[in-house]
């Protein structure tokens, strides 16, 4: 915890080496449990309302598999890069960790750009937020995920910049670890969105 700690004295799993680290680790897993309920409820609402298009455009009129597929690939790759970052952290390689986090953030931004363009296109095709129950539940579910990505981008950027000064210690390691955990969670949610919203929207009417 003190600054005197140097790279050599850090244990193999610095993220859970201290009680504070362990607390963060378990606390964050539990938080993700709560997040699961949150997204579960949004998914349930969406599934109940996905065919209520109220005369507006329906899922199969709008969704194009290519954009969504690209978004999926981007997010999955970013999940992998965040794993590389945590592996680098365990090797006490600050620079390498920062590099992989940077890639993760860039991929996250790419995903957001893609999503915003997609939403713009839907708006252009007259799927406003208040067009139908389908549109409200669609934008809310996917938008909530988008906000999570945005927050993840901000968060990971912040700690990556801080790594210049603070390096890898038993204080900072849990932060890096937990942030990457969050990023994985977002990716898992996206996989469900990809399946339930897009694939089901295009294929299963």
């Amino acid at each position: 915890m003190s600054k005197a700690e140097n790279v050599e004295t850090i244990p193999a799993h610095p993220e859970t080496a201290t009680l504070e680290g362990k607390n963060k680790f378990i606390g964050f897993w539990l938080f993700l449990g709560g997040e699961t309920v949150l997204f579960g409820t949004l998914f349930a609402t969406f599934l109940a309302l996905r065919n209520k298009t109220n005369g507006g455009p329906a899922a199969h009129d709008l969704f194009s598999l290519s954009t969504v597929f690209a978004a999926t690939v981007i997010l999955l790759v970013s999940s992998l890069t965040s794993v590389f970052a945590v592996m680098a952290m365990r090797d006490r390689a600050v620079g390498k960790m920062q590099f992989w986090f940077l890639i993760t953030v860039l991929l996250g931004i790419a995903f957001l750009v893609l999503e915003i363009t997609e939403f713009k296109e839907y708006l252009h095709e007259h799927l406003g937020y208040s067009t139908s129950a389908f549109s409200s539940s669609f934008y809310t579910l996917v938008g909530t995920h988008g906000c999570h990505v945005l927050f993840g981008v901000l968060w990971i950027s912040t700690i990556t910049i801080q790594a210049f000064k603070k390096g890898i210690t038993t204080v900072t390691a849990p932060k890096y670890y937990v942030a990457s955990l969050y990023w994985h969670f977002i990716d898992v949610v996206w996989v469900f969105i990809f399946t339930v919203v897009y694939l089901l929207g295009i294929a299963g009417r």
Binding site: T45, L49, K52, T53, N54, Y129, S130, T131, S132, A133, F134, S135, S136, S137, T140
Partner: peptide, 10 residues
């Protein structure tokens, strides 16, 4: 939004 608005499909 139209989550609970029956006339618009909610």
């Amino acid at each position: 939004g139209n989550f609970f608005n029956a006339t618009n499909g909610g």
